[in-house]
């Protein structure tokens, strides 16, 4: 099963990726190849097989409910392109 341009557009939108027209054309072709390739999986007999989400059979460790972090806002915001009064800025969000 291959992908068409509309599907690729939809995926790109879900993933918030802007592609040029040329990139779209190449993506349709290459993603289709990848999807065809992974389609091999359908041949495997997985009846009754428990899906494996982790390579190790372990349980989640729990952290004590203690605050050890302090305010490092200025340092952390050095990597941000746009901040004002301690806030990260984005184009106006309409509600």
């Amino acid at each position: 099963m291959s992908l068409d341009k509309d599907q690729v557009r939809h995926i790109a939108m879900l993933a918030r990726l802007k592609l040029t027209d040329e990139e779209y054309a190449i993506s349709v072709q290459k993603l289709s190849k990848i999807v065809d390739f992974v389609d091999q999986l359908s041949a495997a007999d997985t009846t009754g097989v428990v899906p494996m989400a982790h390579p190790l059979d372990a349980a989640q460790r729990l952290r004590p409910d203690v605050v050890t972090e302090s305010n490092e806002r200025d340092r952390y915001q050095e990597n941000a392109a746009s901040v004002s009064a301690g806030l990260y800025l984005v184009p106006k969000v309409l509600e």
Partner: peptide, 15 residues
């Protein structure tokens, strides 16, 4: 939280 008041063309993000 997104903060809209007092910011012209932007929204401010407080995490």
């Amino acid at each position: 939280k997104s903060i809209h008041e007092g910011l012209d063309t932007s929204s401010g993000i407080d995490l």
